[in-house]
């Protein structure tokens, strides 16, 4: 019988069970790493370093997990904080600025398929838009869960999703036309 996340967490907290923590990592590594890859605009090495930092932080703080939210939501919050901390370290002067990427290459030049173009278009969103869309679509969180994970008001999540998706529609206009025909 497969143990629930709550059972595994209890084993880690009460008995410092590394096997139980390994199982938690195995279960959640894919969505956490995918989310961080999206946040880092596809930088896999950086994303995996942040994912490692995320799980180590989670291990250290697991006794403080109150189960008021799902474990995965709590992990996303740690991952997002790790990402923000890294931004602050990298750019101490404008760490909190929500910047939009300047791509030197227009999205049309490498039109391989929709997913490729979508990944490129996602890189052109602001950090906040990308975070909100990634958590709600790639990670499958509800708006409320995403707000909890990001530490934002619900309205901010919705606004960023709205503006982000409007931009994506604009960047992917040709795909929109193809789908319509």
């Amino acid at each position: 019988m497969e143990l629930s996340d709550a059972d595994l967490i209890a084993r880690v907290v009460l008995d410092d069970d590394h096997h139980a923590f390994a199982e938690l990592v195995r279960r959640h590594q894919s969505p956490v790493r995918a989310t961080l890859r999206s946040l880092t605009r596809g930088d896999e090495v950086r994303a995996d370093e942040l994912a490692q930092e995320t799980f180590l932080r989670a291990y250290r703080s697991l006794k403080n997990f109150r189960a008021e939210s799902q474990f995965s939501t709590w992990l996303y919050r740690i991952a997002y904080n790790a990402f923000q901390d890294e931004l602050r370290r990298a750019k101490p002067h404008d760490a909190l600025e929500d910047h939009e990427a300047e791509l030197t290459q227009p999205a049309e030049t490498e039109r391989v398929d929709l997913q490729h173009d979508l990944a490129e278009a996602m890189k052109r969103l602001t950090d906040n838009e990308r975070a909100a869309i990634t958590l709600c679509y790639t990670s499958g969180l509800t708006h409320e869960e995403a707000a909890a994970a990001l530490g934002w008001p619900l309205g901010t999540v919705k606004t960023n999703i709205l503006t982000g998706k409007e931009k994506l529609r604009r960047y992917l206009e040709s795909w929109q036309d193809r789908r319509a025909t």
């Binding site: 590394h18 923590f21 390994a22 990592v25 195995r26 590594q29 894919s30 969505p31 790493r33 995918a34 890859r37 995996d48 994912a51 490692q52 799980f55 180590l56 291990y59 929709l114 997913q115 979508l118 990944a119 996602m122 869309i133 679509y137 790639t138 990670s139 499958g140 998706k165 994506l168 529609r169 992917l172 795909w175 929109q176 789908r179």
Partner: peptide, 28 residues
Amino acid sequence: RDWLDDALKENARYISDNGFTASIVAAL
């Protein structure tokens, strides 16, 4: 909205572990 929602959800692909969990456990 439908085609974009579908594309965004399709974008969620599984990332295989490939030693990631082992590296975490080793760092504990």
